[in-house]
Simulated assay, not measured.
Amino acid sequence: MIGVLGSLAEYERELIGERTALKRAASRNNGTKFGRPRKVDDAEHIATAARMKADGHTAKDIAKYLGVSRATLYRYLDPTAR
């Protein structure tokens, strides 16, 4: 009896996963964005950061100006990260 209940629970869990995946795919097709929003999404700010880096400012100063961490700054300045 416990084995039958266990297999029913496993089957139900698989169904939940399938429904979740379908809903997620439908939401993506409708334009819903998942995940944490970007801290700096403005292309102008990113261009300013690139200009500041080219002018010789340190990453620490640029990150402080934008209000982000250095790791986030490096991610925005990396052309392969997009």
Rank of each mutant, 00 (worst) to 15 (best):
R36C: 14
K53I: 04
Y11T: 14
L73V: 12
G67L: 09
L22I: 15
E12F: 12
A71Y: 12
K39Y: 00
R28T: 12
I2L: 14
K23D: 15
P37W: 08
V40P: 08
A47P: 00
A43M: 12
R38V: 04
H57R: 00
D41G: 12
Y11F: 15
L15V: 10
A50M: 04
R36E: 15
H45Q: 13
I46M: 04
A63F: 14
D61A: 10
K39H: 05
T72L: 01
E14N: 13
P37G: 07
G3K: 09
V68M: 01
T72K: 05
K60W: 07
R13Q: 10
A50G: 04
R70I: 15
L66E: 02
K39I: 05
D61V: 02
R70Q: 15
R51Y: 03
I62Y: 02
G17H: 07
E14D: 12
L66Y: 04
E14H: 11
P37C: 09
A50S: 06
A43K: 11
G3L: 13
A9S: 08
G17V: 06
G17P: 02
D55S: 13
N29Q: 02
R19M: 13
M52H: 03
E44P: 02
L66R: 05
A21N: 08
N30Y: 07
A43W: 11
